[in-house]
Nucleic acid binder design. Structure first.
Lengths: 337, 337
DNA sequence: CGGCCTGATCGAAGCGCTTCGACAAGTTCC
DNA sequence: GGAACTTGTCGAAGCGCTTCGATCAGGCCG
């Protein structure tokens, strides 16, 4: 491995000069800079990450804690993770991948060892165990998701309340009076994952406002579970004509089941999904949907974290405005029987 | 931040003694060890990762390069990535997440900076640009996937040839004589991703052996694309009664389309999928399938990499044997018309 | 024209850890 | 009973980098 000292010798300057060329923290004459840069090229020099971290107490690594669970829609997680990784690179950071398995201890370990300069947490629960540790660690941190008490922590998330409201507004605008929400798996609500509850809150609020009746049912996803959920919904509310689906694993089963039951979409029943655009566009009926802006969330999270590391942190909650794309799965409610 | 020296002082020993307690590289008396461990607890000491990396030239980090592309089934990637991260932790390693974006340069950067001790590459192409750099870097490395020339590199992958053969064998055993393979997107083949081609090779070989006719068609996935592919297949080979599907995005569309065409599964047509068990079990018809052992692949990759770092590397190709699970989508071929 | 400021460079100190050699104090063995 | 080990501990040297003065050569000002 080539070292700074070797580069310095090759360029006929001191080690510190090379360091300043690299960091730009002091002015260097054009001729010296060129000479040094040429030597760096020639020798194929790469600064040693450990030495750099030790000397500067900056690792240029951002830790990303992803949930271990697979009861939530994985592609969204992956998309966020990839967006985080690529955005981080454009700011000169690498990303360390932590799974939830280690739990809150991971926060302590990473902060304690100075392995990462900052952390991004995904799948944040309303009362998340990791948050006290995070505050205490005094490191830059951004949450993707919104806990009950976000004080002192920067958060990035889709505005799920507005999302829920938007879905209801759309359906109500089409004259639907009875709406069912097919939600995430029950475990997601039990764990008090913020986004799921907030969506329902938004749905309820807008329903009240527009005088629409709402029935919310968790659903495990998959055919069998969705069939059961759907049967119970129609049992309880036979007049249901609008669906809001917030569970990717229930989308396709739902469409199939409705078809099998002879309910046409959107003539008899309208469906709005909360899911990535790709899923909505590729479903058997092109779905009217509110997209989950996974990329945008990952990108914003990194930008916030980088801002915090640069001392320009906001410590604020940033909610992304939902956007509803009308496709082929929603239409006017059928005339009342 | 608490340092080694502070722990040493607190425990009344020298710094090196604390270091040896931590690493176990020299014998330490029980009493001293206890005292040091107690001090570590009390002070909440965590070794500084950078300092450790610098002094030992070991970062205890494994870099994982995941593809940036999303034309391949993402959940499998995610499952592998998570398995890698959790397995790595059990061996004392953290995982650095690199996306394909940086391309081959990432290999050079990571190796050059000693940021990671080893690399795991996913989505390896037959002629992968990263491989020469990897060999040259002289770092421990494991590929998940199988390039054309794996010499000198440890590889872990599902035995896709055997997988293809197994699918055909299963269908042939049920008396199917005309089989269609619905494959990955054309781009996957153009890029010469090993697994896709190897599956087809396995299919062809076993078909020859059993006297079965095979038609292979790439497919983009989604409804529209799958419909087109399916139409062309029946057009060309009206007698097709068996399908092998290696594209998760085509599975559900295919089942729906067959149903719409009045072809019952498995009475008229049998379908074998190559996909994660979860997808197979949750599909609208429970699918006979060969599972993609994502977790196992991630786990084995880490174990190989750890072995290499410990100097017990094999440098060999490890192909995991496929397992076919019979579910409800395959049965005897219908009597010839 | 002497003092001062600016710009470019250097030297040295250290960041917190690992590891090697040294050494004192037992143990073992013939 | 001492040579030859073994065991447990320490001190010091460095790993490769950043960064803080310090230095030195010019340029500028009154």
């Amino acid at each position: 491995m080539v070292t700074l000292a070797e580069v310095a010798q090759h360029a006929g300057v001191s080690a510190s000069t090379v360091s300043y060329v690299l960091s730009g923290k002091r002015s260097i004459s054009a001729s010296t800079r060129e000479r040094v840069e040429k030597s760096i090229q020639r020798l194929g020099y790469h600064p040693n990450a450990g030495a750099r971290a030790l000397a500067s107490s900056r690792s240029n690594i951002i830790a990303l804690m992803v949930p271990l669970r697979t009861d939530m829609y994985v592609p969204v997680m992956m998309e966020i993770a990839i967006a985080v990784a690529t955005t981080a690179r454009t700011h000169g950071y690498d990303v360390l991948l932590l799974t939830g398995e280690e739990g809150p201890a991971a926060v302590r370990r990473i902060a304690g060892s100075s392995l990462a300069d900052a952390m991004i947490l995904m799948d944040v629960e309303l009362q998340d165990e990791r948050l006290p540790l995070l505050r205490e660690a005094g490191r830059a941190a951004v949450l993707i998701g919104l806990p009950a008490d976000p004080s002192g922590l920067t958060c990035v998330d889709l505005d799920f309340e507005a999302t829920g409201a938007l879905c209801v507004e759309h359906l109500a605008g089409f004259g639907h009076r009875e709406i069912a929400v097919i939600g995430e798996a029950a475990a997601v609500y039990e764990r008090h994952t913020g986004f799921a509850e907030r969506t329902v809150d938004g749905v309820r609020a807008k329903a009240r406002e527009t005088g629409v009746r709402v029935l919310h049912r968790p659903c495990e996803g998959g055919y069998a579970a969705t069939a059961g959920t759907l049967a119970r919904i129609f049992d309880e509310r036979p007049g249901t004509t609008g669906f809001v689906v917030q569970n990717e694993a229930a989308v396709e089963p739902l469409l199939n089941l409705l078809r099998q039951q002879g309910r046409a979409v959107p003539e008899d029943v309208s469906v709005v999904a909360i899911c990535p655009d790709q899923v909505a566009a590729q479903a058997s009926v092109r779905l009217t949907s509110v997209a989950i802006p996974a990329q945008e969330m990952g990108r914003r999270a990194v930008e916030q974290v980088v801002a915090e590391l640069a001392g320009r942190g906001t410590g604020e909650v940033e909610l992304l405005a939902p956007e509803l794309t009308v496709r082929a799965s929603t239409g006017p409610a059928p005339a009342r029987a």
